[in-house]
C-alpha cells in the first residue's frame, strides 16, 4: 500500500456519490486541468468565437469517435473511417450536383450519406463476421479501397457544389452553437443511453469482454459485432454531412485524412480499453475535447504545426500508460 493510494481512497469515495463513474474521472480531471492551463497560456482561448471553433473542429472527429467507441468496446477496430468519410463525401456532392431542386437535393444527399456510411460499415462488418478476418486487417484494406475509390471517382480533384441551401446544414448556428456541435452532443447522449441503459449496449460490452461467454449466454455475437461496424459507418455518414456542408465541397485526398487516428485516440484517452469489454461514451467525448483543445492551444501559442503530431502522440501514450497502471 503506497501512502498515495491511501490518501486518494476517501476522495474516490466522495466522488462515488457524484453521478460520475470512476472510469471517466481521470480524463475529466485532465480536461479541466488542460482547460485552465489553456486559458492562462493564451488570452484568445476563452474568446467565444475561439471556443465555438474548437467545439466545431472537435465535433467532426468526435462524431466518428463515438461510432468507434462501439466498435472498440465490442472488441474490434475500424481504421477505414477516414477514407470512408472521403468516399461518402464524394457521394454526397454527386447527389447534390445531380438533383436540380435544391431542397430535395440536400435531403437526398444527407440520406445518401447515412445510407452510404451504413453500407460501407456493413461491408466491413460482414468481412469481419462472415469472412472471419481480423477487424484490423479488414479495415486496413478497406481504408485503402475507400480512399482509392474516392480519388478515382473525382480524378483526385476537389468537388464543390453551388447548392444554396447545403451550407446551412454544417455552417448554421442554433442558440449560438454550430449545428455540428449540437449533433455531436445529441449523438453522445443517445449513444450513452444505448450503451448503458439498453440490453443491446450490455451485449456490446459482453461480446468485447468475452465473446465465448456471450455465445454461451445466447447472445448473437456476430450480429452484435456487425451492428457496431454499421453504427460506425452511420456516424461517418453524419460527420461527412457536417464536414462537406461546412466547406460546400470535398477534397478526396484530404477529407478525413488521419481521422481514424484522432477517433481512436479520443476513445483511448477517454479510458475505453482497446482490448474491448468496457468503455464509456462520455470518456470518448472528453477525449475528443482534450485533443481539440491541445490542437487549439498549440496553434494559439504558435508552436510549429509539425510538432502537433508529436504532442498528440505523447498524449495517447500517456493515456494508455495510465490505463495499464490502473488495471493490474
Amino acid at each position: 500500500m503506497s501512502p498515495l493510494s491511501q490518501r486518494t481512497t476517501p476522495l474516490a469515495q466522495r466522488f462515488r456519490n457524484l453521478p460520475i463513474s470512476g472510469a471517466i474521472l481521470a480524463p475529466l480531471l485532465a480536461l479541466i486541468v488542460l482547460f485552465v492551463i489553456s486559458s492562462l497560456a493564451s488570452e484568445y482561448f476563452l474568446n467565444t468565437r475561439n471556443l465555438s471553433n474548437v467545439l466545431r473542429q472537435v465535433s467532426y472527429t468526435g462524431i466518428i469517435a463515438i461510432g468507434m467507441t462501439f466498435v472498440i468496446i465490442a472488441g474490434g477496430i475500424d481504421l477505414s473511417v477516414g477514407s470512408m468519410l472521403a468516399l461518402v463525401g464524394v457521394v454526397v456532392l454527386y447527389v447534390l450536383n445531380t438533383i436540380t431542386d435544391p431542397f430535395q437535393a440536400v435531403i437526398l444527399a444527407m440520406l445518401a450519406a447515412l445510407v452510404g456510411g451504413a453500407l460501407l460499415g456493413l461491408f466491413n462488418g460482414l468481412l469481419v463476421t462472415r469472412g472471419r478476418i481480423a477487424a484490423f486487417v479488414v479495415t486496413l484494406a478497406t481504408m485503402s479501397i475507400f480512399r482509392s475509390l474516392a480519388l478515382y471517382f473525382t480524378d483526385a480533384a476537389e468537388v464543390s457544389t453551388r447548392n444554396p441551401l447545403f451550407q446551412g446544414v454544417g455552417g448554421g448556428f442554433v442558440l449560438g452553437l454550430p449545428i455540428p456541435v449540437w449533433t455531436f452532443f445529441a449523438l453522445a447522449v443517445v449513444s450513452h443511453v444505448v450503451l448503458f441503459h439498453t440490453a443491446y449496449g450490455r451485449h456490446v460490452c459482453a461480446v468485447g469482454a468475452n465473446a465465448q461467454v456471450a455465445r454461451y449466454s445466447g447472445i448473437r455475437v456476430e450480429r452484435v459485432v456487425l451492428s457496431t461496424f454499421l453504427i460506425a459507418g452511420v456516424c461517418v455518414g453524419l460527420s461527412a454531412i457536417m464536414l462537406t456542408s461546412r466547406l460546400n465541397s470535398v477534397s478526396p485526398s484530404d477529407a478525413g485524412y488521419f481521422f481514424e487516428l484522432d477517433a481512436i485516440a479520443a476513445v483511448v484517452i477517454g479510458g475505453t480499453a482497446l482490448s474491448g469489454g468496457r468503455g464509456t461514451v462520455w470518456g470518448t467525448v472528453i477525449g475528443a475535447l482534450i485533443l481539440g483543445i491541445i490542437n487549439n492551444m498549440l496553434n494559439l501559442t504558435g508552436v510549429s504545426p509539425y510538432l502537433q503530431g508529436l504532442v498528440k502522440g505523447a498524449v495517447i501514450l500517456l493515456a494508455v500508460l495510465l490505463q495499464y497502471k490502473r488495471a493490474p
Binding site: A199, A206, A209, Q212, V213, A214
Partner: peptide, 21 residues
C-alpha cells in the same frame, strides 16, 4: 471462467446476463 461468467462484469450484470430482457 472461459464460458460461464463475464469476469470483468460485476455481480449484478452477471446475474442478469441471461434474463436481461
Amino acid at each position: 471462467q472461459g464460458k460461464g461468467l463475464q469476469l470483468s462484469f460485476n455481480v449484478m450484470q452477471n446475474v442478469t446476463d441471461l434474463s436481461l430482457a
